Simulated assay, not measured.
Amino acid sequence: MRINGQKAWAAGLALGLAVLAGGCTSIRDHRGYIVDSMLIDAVQPGIDNRTSVERTLGRPTFVSQFGQQDWYYVSQNVRTPPFSRPRTASQMVMRVRFDPAGNVTGVDKRGVEQVARIGPEGDKTPTLGRHRSFLEDLFGNVGSVGAGGMGQTPTGPGPNGS
Results as ranks from 00 to 15, higher is better:
Met1Gln: 14
Arg2Gly: 12
Arg2Pro: 09
Arg2Cys: 07
Ile3Ser: 14
Gly5Leu: 12
Ala11Tyr: 01
Gly12Glu: 04
Leu17Asn: 03
Val19His: 04
Leu20Thr: 07
Cys24Val: 12
Ile27Phe: 11
Ile27Cys: 06
Asp29Leu: 15
Asp29Ser: 15
Arg31Ile: 13
Gly32Arg: 04
Gly32Cys: 06
Tyr33Trp: 00
Tyr33His: 05
Val35Trp: 03
Met38Pro: 11
Ile40Asn: 01
Ala42Phe: 01
Val43Ala: 01
Ile47Asn: 02
Ser52Gly: 08
Glu54Ser: 09
Leu57Glu: 04
Ser64Ala: 09
Gly67Lys: 09
Ser75Ala: 08
Asn77Gly: 12
Asn77His: 14
Asn77Trp: 12
Val78Arg: 01
Arg79Gly: 13
Ser84Tyr: 00
Arg85Ile: 08
Met92Arg: 07
Met94Pro: 05
Val96Ala: 00
Arg97Trp: 08
Arg97His: 08
Pro100His: 00
Val107Gln: 07
Lys109Cys: 10
Arg110Phe: 10
Gln114His: 15
Val115Asp: 13
Ala116Leu: 15
Ala116Val: 14
Ile118Gln: 06
Ile118Asp: 08
Gly119Met: 15
Gly122Cys: 02
Gly122Pro: 06
Asp123Ala: 15
Lys124Pro: 08
Lys124Tyr: 12
Lys124His: 13
Thr127Gly: 09
Gly129Phe: 04
His131Thr: 15
Leu135Val: 14
Glu136Trp: 04
Asp137Glu: 14
Leu138His: 09
Phe139Gly: 08
Phe139Val: 10
Gly140Met: 02
Asn141Gly: 12
Val142Asn: 05
Ser144Thr: 15
Ala147Lys: 09
Gly149Ile: 02
Gly149Phe: 03
Pro157Gln: 10
Gly161His: 04
